[in-house]
């Protein structure tokens, strides 16, 4: 991916062809744990969409104006800026931003939907360490997106993750009539079904030129 790709194309790509869960397998832990019920899956999906859409552009600004090589030129002049390499702190700063936003989400959910708050339990604050969300910020740096592209990517990656967990919750509801061998119950069968989902999504591979 590069600078000249239309943000709309990035949006479609991050949902279908480069789905953050089904292609990169990021964010698996909460995906497996919270996909038992459709309601909670939808709630966590919405939370992930919000956090990714907000943190990816903010981290872009942070990266562009403070962390990149020579990023501080606007503040301390080009000579001094070329000697400062704050890039090594990228992970710390990104996580701090994400943690802040997750706190906001937690407060809002607890205030307006206590039922969802208790259903999600530990997995709501754990969005902080959801690798899909940190992955969104790191991919955005890696692929050298501009600001608009990073907004599109943040929203698309979140929507892709939410779509995947909704589909999985639906399938798990249907699988209540299944008789899974005891050794594969729960985690095992969910992993296998995720693999099948990833296989089916490979049909979209290459549908958009990124």
């Amino acid at each position: 991916m590069s600078h000249d790709v239309n943000p709309l194309v990035i949006l479609v790509a991050s949902i279908l062809t480069n789905n953050i869960l089904l292609v990169y397998f990021l964010g698996m832990c909460s995906f497996v744990a919270v996909s038992k019920k459709i309601e909670t899956a939808a709630g966590l999906g919405a939370a992930v969409i919000f956090v990714l859409t907000a943190t990816t552009p903010i981290n872009w600004l942070l990266n562009h104006y403070f962390l990149e090589d020579n990023a501080l030129a606007w503040l301390v002049g080009p000579h001094l800026a070329s000697k400062v390499h704050l890039g090594i702190f990228a992970l710390v700063f990104f996580i701090a931003v994400i943690a802040g936003f997750v706190q906001i989400v937690e407060l809002v959910v607890e205030r307006f939907s206590p039922a969802l708050y208790y259903a999600l339990g530990i997995f709501l604050p754990l969005i902080t360490v959801n690798c899909a969300i940190l992955g969104g910020s790191l991919f955005m740096v890696e692929w050298k997106f501009n600001f608009m592209q990073s907004i599109a990517y943040g929203f698309g990656a979140g929507a892709g993750w939410a779509l995947a967990i909704l589909v999985m919750a639906g399938l798990r509801k249907r699988m209540r009539i299944s008789l899974v061998p005891r050794g594969l119950e729960g985690m095992g069968i969910t992993m296998i079904v995720t693999g099948v989902m990833a296989m089916a999504f490979m049909a979209f591979n290459g549908i958009v030129p990124v």
């Binding site: 399938l171 249907r174 699988m175 009539i177 299944s178 008789l179 899974v180 069968i189 296998i192 099948v196």
Partner: peptide, 10 residues
Amino acid sequence: IFGGTGRNPF
């Protein structure tokens, strides 16, 4: 692995 005919989602 889903328990045979009638119990499979795919």
